[in-house]
Simulated scan of single mutants.
Amino acid sequence: MWNHIHLLIEVPPKCDQLLSDEGLLERLELLYSADHVGMVRMQLEDLMNSTTEVGQKAYQEVRETYARRMWDLGLFMKTLKQRFSSWYNKKHQRKGTLWEARYKSVLVENGHAARTMAAYIDLN
């Protein structure tokens, strides 16, 4: 069918170690434009050196805005659908949403179930 997509996504467990700013920016480069990543880089650099409590709080908020998406499937899907819709609408000179309903998710454990799901997706 042409009106839906299937994704098999592994959501890694959230690590206890804090992701470095460079690590965060490397991951953002996979999803955002160079201009957007450059803007985030400048924000982080400006706020990181802040000596005020407000500046340090703003630094943490910028980091958290992007970092929390890495382990949250709902936020990931929201961003993916929005970015794809924007691209598709621009390419086809149209407006509006592409998806009628919220995404559906199924938890798949490793092993046979994951291979079966991958085969199902491949055949679709």
Rank of each mutant, 00 (worst) to 15 (best):
N3R: 13
I5A: 10
I5T: 08
H6F: 06
L7W: 07
L7R: 00
L8C: 09
I9A: 04
P12L: 09
P13A: 14
K14P: 01
C15Y: 11
C15E: 15
C15F: 09
D16C: 12
L19Q: 07
S20I: 06
S20W: 02
D21W: 06
D21L: 03
E22Q: 05
E22T: 05
G23N: 01
L25V: 05
E26M: 10
R27C: 07
E29Y: 04
L30Y: 13
L31P: 02
L31H: 12
A34M: 12
D35S: 15
H36Q: 11
G38A: 01
M39K: 07
M39L: 12
V40H: 04
M42C: 12
Q43S: 08
Q43I: 03
D46M: 12
D46H: 11
D46V: 13
M48S: 14
M48H: 15
T51Q: 15
T52D: 04
T52Y: 03
T52R: 00
T52F: 06
Q56K: 08
A58Q: 11
Y59L: 02
Q60I: 06
V62Y: 05
V62R: 05
V62M: 04
V62H: 03
E64F: 15
E64Q: 09
Y66T: 05
Y66R: 05
Y66K: 02
A67G: 07
R69N: 02
R69I: 00
D72W: 03
L73K: 03
L73D: 00
L73S: 00
L75I: 04
M77V: 01
K78R: 11
K78T: 09
T79V: 13
T79K: 10
L80I: 07
K81N: 14
K81F: 03
Q82K: 14
R83F: 01
R83T: 04
F84L: 11
F84V: 13
S85R: 01
S86T: 12
S86E: 11
H92P: 00
H92E: 04
Q93M: 10
Q93S: 14
R94D: 10
K95P: 06
K95Y: 12
G96Q: 07
L98S: 02
W99K: 01
W99N: 04
W99T: 03
E100H: 06
R102C: 06
K104C: 13
V106A: 08
V106R: 09
L107Q: 09
L107G: 14
L107M: 10
V108L: 00
V108W: 01
V108S: 02
E109I: 14
N110E: 09
G111H: 01
H112A: 13
H112E: 15
H112V: 15
A113E: 08
A113R: 08
T116F: 09
T116D: 11
M117I: 15
M117A: 14
A119D: 14
Y120A: 03
I121P: 01
D122V: 09
L123P: 10
